[in-house]
Amino acid sequence: MDATDIRLALFTGNYNYVRDGANQALNRLVGFLLAQGASVRVYSPRVEKPAFPSVGKVVGVPAIPLPGRAEYRAPIGIPRRVRKDIREFAPNIFHVASPEILGHRAVTLARKMDRPVVASVHTRFETYPRYYGMAFLEPLMEAALRRFYRRCDAIFAPSESMAQLLREQRMNYDVGIWSRGVERDVFDPARRDLDWRRALGIGDDEVTVGFVGRLVMEKGLDVFSETIDRLRQRGVKHRVLVVGEGPAGDWFARRLPDDAVFAGFQRGEDLGRAVASMDILFNPSVTETFGNVTLEAMAAGLPVVAAIATGSSSLVDDGVTGRLVRPGAINRFAEAIQFYCEDHAARQAAGAAGRAASARYGWDEVNGALLDAYLRIVRHRQAGGRASNRLPLR
């Protein structure tokens, strides 16, 4: 059995209508699988003006705007026409990428069709309520996620730190790694552009503390802004450079100093230039399961100051490629950033170490590992095996 025997049905709540690290990884995966001769069908909400072209055949599923976050769509199930398409496609493995209604229905359908189903974990949904004043919901969300992931034959985390957390949460017996890759030709120190910085009003000798990502509260915008406040109180010379856009953009702009620079949404080589033109990346988020922006900054030769959290703790070598700080520890974040702001040699050394470490993450290698896992799981099912995930719920 090889890649040409794989017939994959992929279900995701967002394949390409809003750009994020998760759906870009999914599109890369589909492109890789098709290039290896596998057959793939994607089931996801579709919109008239997606954020980027999709890879592979996409079948639209019904969805409604997500309350409070209308830019996202909430799939509301698998209608008869889609079920008919799935049966005609005849997948031998299902992959669900988001634990919402579509994902639940896909797992149920996989069981009815006696097909193995795997899930990839892209974000820590159980942590989201804390950013909207509803932290009391976290245990309930964790329990709901456990019931969802325990119905799958296997689940895949993008980092060992996230995989270990999933094991501790008893989400599934079979927890594998589907890491992420980085385009080292795009994210390269050589793309640093002083003219671009000058056009934004940033001086050649000004140390920039960068933020990259969607401007939403769960990315730790409150911790970022409070840390910048602390740097100003300490008299640390720096500029803030924000790359990204999102619904919390206005709030973030009000909380940051007046001289903070908002470069807006960047992509491709423009994003590579923007990241390389920073001096330090500050990533206080605890919701990522991997942290694409962290790896991209490392590839671009930046020291990274990040929260000790899933993803970052697997990427950042504390004291070598950057600093890892307890989540929410504003003074410690400020101390770490101040160190790199004031020590050019330390910035250079950490950036060079990060660039070297990023060489371990190639897209073909990480997607090839997931393909091998698909083959293992399909062979196991065809041989009469079943998932070994009957752990007691707690």
Rank of each mutant, 00 (worst) to 15 (best):
G311V: 02
G210P: 03
A334D: 05
Q266S: 14
R230K: 14
G351T: 08
M278Q: 06
R192G: 03
T287L: 07
A300M: 12
M217A: 12
V304Y: 10
V47C: 07
R115G: 08
R83E: 12
A110R: 01
V82F: 06
D317R: 15
F11W: 02
L271F: 03
R69Q: 15
F125A: 02
L66N: 04
I280P: 00
R376W: 10
L221I: 11
G176K: 04
V82K: 04
D205V: 07
P129E: 06
T294H: 06
E288N: 10
I64H: 05
K49C: 13
Y17I: 09
I86S: 01
D318F: 14
H238D: 04
A350Q: 03
G31I: 08
T287A: 10
A334C: 09
G31E: 09
G272M: 05
P129F: 05
G351R: 04
D364I: 11
V305K: 04
L145H: 00
R81V: 12
I330R: 11
Y173R: 15
R41F: 12
N14L: 06
A163I: 03
A22S: 10
V58S: 00
Y374P: 04
D185Y: 06
H104F: 11
T12S: 03
V117T: 03
E142Q: 10
V121E: 00
F262I: 06
I101A: 15
V293P: 03
R7A: 11
F156H: 02
V175H: 02
R87S: 11
N389H: 14
V59H: 11
S314F: 05
A157L: 02
F11A: 00
F252D: 00
I330F: 11
S159H: 00
A373K: 12
T321G: 08
D153I: 00
G201K: 04
A369E: 12
